[in-house]
Simulated scan of single mutants.
Amino acid sequence: MTNKAIISTDKAPAAIGTYSQAVKVNNTVYLSGQIPLIPETMEMVGNDFRAQATQVFKNLSAVCEAANGSLAQIVKLNLYLTDLSHFPVVNEVMAEFFEAPYPARAAVGVKELPKAAMFEAEAIMVI
C-alpha cells in the first residue's frame, strides 16, 4: 500500500495554482517548482538574478524541512532559467546551499515563468 502525504509549510510560498508544495510517497518527496516569492508577503524578492536564485533555494529548503528532510537529501533537481547567461550564477548560489556529492540536475532555458520570475527550481528528495 502506498503511503501518500501532502507536505505544506507557511515558511515557503503558498501555492499560486492547483498544486501542493510537495507530495510524499513512501520515502520519496516530490517538490513542486519554487519561484522567488517571499513567503510572508507573496511578493517577488526583486529583479536581481542572484537574489532570486537565493530565495528559490531558501523556499526549497523550507519545503524539504517540512517533509523532515533537507536539501542534502535531494537526488534530482530541475532548474528553469529565462536567460541561460545566468547559469554561472546558479552554480555559485547552489554552492552556498549544497555540498558534494551534488544531486543529478538539469538546467533548461525557458521563455517565461510565473509572475515574471527569472528562475524556478523543482526537486525530488529521498528521505
Rank of each mutant, 00 (worst) to 15 (best):
I38V: 15
Y80T: 00
A117W: 03
E122F: 04
S20F: 10
L79P: 00
K76R: 11
L77I: 07
I127M: 13
I7Y: 05
A14H: 14
N26A: 05
G33T: 06
I6Q: 10
V108W: 04
E112Y: 05
V108E: 11
G69W: 01
A62T: 06
Q34K: 11
A14T: 13
T41I: 10
L71V: 08
F98G: 02
A67C: 09
K11E: 11
P114R: 02
T2E: 11
V29G: 02
L77T: 04
P39R: 05
P39Q: 02
A66H: 08
L77G: 02
D48I: 13
M44P: 06
V45S: 09
M118E: 06
I7T: 05
M118Q: 15
V45G: 02
M118F: 10
A14R: 15
V23G: 01
F119I: 12
A22M: 09
E40A: 15
N3H: 15
T54K: 12
T9V: 05
A14Q: 15
V110A: 07
K58S: 00
A116T: 04
A116G: 15
N91A: 09
V89W: 00
N47R: 14
Y19R: 14
M125E: 02
V110Y: 08
A14G: 11
G17N: 06
R105P: 00
A67H: 04
L77E: 01
P114T: 03
K115Y: 09
I35P: 04
P13G: 00
T28E: 13
V23E: 09
K76E: 04
V93C: 02
H86S: 11
M118S: 05
P88S: 09
M125D: 02
L31P: 11
N59F: 02
A66C: 12
F97K: 06
E92N: 07
P114S: 02
M44G: 04
F57Y: 14
S61H: 08
P101V: 01
M125A: 12
L77D: 01
V45D: 05
V126E: 14
Y30W: 11
